[in-house]
Simulated scan of single mutants.
Amino acid sequence: MPERFGMALVGLGAASQPHLLSLQDLSERIDLRYAVTRHPHPDRIRPFTAPVRLVSALDEALNDPLVQAVIVATPPSTHLDICQRCFAAGKHVLLEKPLELNLEKSKQLVSLAQQYGLHLGVVFQHRFRQASLVLQDVLETGRLGEVQAASVRVPWWRSQSYYNELGRGTLARDGGGVLLTQAIHTLNLFQVLVGVKSVTASLVQKTRLHQMETEDHVSALLVLGNGAAGDLMATTAMYPGFPETIEVIGTLGSARLTGADLQVHFLTGELLTVRSEGGTGSGANMMDFSHAPHRDLLTDFMDAIAQKRAPRVTGEDALKTHLLIDALLRKAQVSKV
Score class of each variant (00 low, 15 high):
231 D>F: 07
157 W>I: 05
204 V>P: 02
64 D>F: 01
92 H>T: 09
24 Q>C: 13
298 L>N: 09
119 H>Y: 09
129 R>H: 12
47 P>R: 06
103 L>A: 08
324 L>F: 04
157 W>K: 00
187 L>C: 02
73 A>N: 06
81 D>I: 07
103 L>R: 09
75 P>A: 13
122 V>R: 09
41 H>D: 07
235 T>P: 05
321 T>N: 07
126 H>G: 12
94 L>R: 03
186 T>C: 08
35 A>D: 09
301 F>H: 06
15 A>R: 01
328 L>V: 03
160 Q>P: 02
72 V>H: 04
136 Q>D: 12
133 L>E: 15
157 W>H: 12
180 L>F: 08
160 Q>W: 12
181 T>G: 08
281 G>L: 04
33 R>I: 04
195 G>F: 10
332 A>M: 01
258 T>D: 15
42 P>A: 05
123 V>A: 14
29 R>E: 14
253 G>H: 02
195 G>P: 12
69 A>S: 12
104 E>L: 12
60 E>C: 03
178 V>Y: 05
250 G>N: 06
324 L>W: 03
109 L>S: 02
58 L>Q: 07
106 S>E: 00
86 C>R: 02
277 E>F: 13
120 L>F: 07
30 I>V: 15
195 G>R: 06
264 V>D: 08
199 V>N: 00
99 L>Y: 00
198 S>C: 08
297 L>C: 01
111 S>W: 09
287 M>H: 10
73 A>M: 00
200 T>P: 03
206 K>C: 13
90 G>H: 09
329 L>V: 13
29 R>L: 15
214 T>L: 04
48 F>Y: 10
254 S>P: 00
100 E>P: 04
187 L>H: 01
172 A>K: 01
208 R>C: 13
80 L>G: 06
290 S>L: 05
241 G>W: 13
106 S>L: 04
119 H>K: 14
276 S>W: 00
268 T>S: 15
33 R>T: 08
42 P>E: 07
294 H>V: 14
88 A>T: 12
304 A>K: 00
314 T>A: 13
229 A>N: 13
323 L>F: 11
281 G>W: 03
303 D>Y: 01
149 A>I: 11
219 S>C: 15
102 N>R: 03
242 F>E: 15
278 G>S: 05
207 T>F: 11
297 L>I: 05
179 L>W: 04
145 G>E: 10
316 E>N: 07
240 P>N: 01
125 Q>L: 11
270 E>P: 03
99 L>C: 10
302 M>T: 09
71 I>V: 14
88 A>W: 00
8 A>F: 06
190 F>E: 02
143 R>Y: 07
82 I>Q: 06
255 A>D: 04
214 T>A: 13
3 E>K: 12
226 N>W: 11
167 G>K: 03
258 T>N: 08
92 H>A: 13
194 V>N: 06
229 A>R: 14
242 F>P: 04
196 V>D: 02
301 F>W: 06
320 K>C: 14
15 A>D: 03
197 K>P: 12
285 N>A: 14
271 L>R: 10
243 P>Q: 02
96 E>D: 11
313 V>Q: 09
25 D>C: 11
46 R>V: 06
188 N>V: 00
278 G>P: 04
87 F>L: 06
168 R>S: 12
267 L>N: 12
174 D>Y: 13
113 A>P: 08
70 V>M: 02
173 R>M: 10
273 T>G: 07
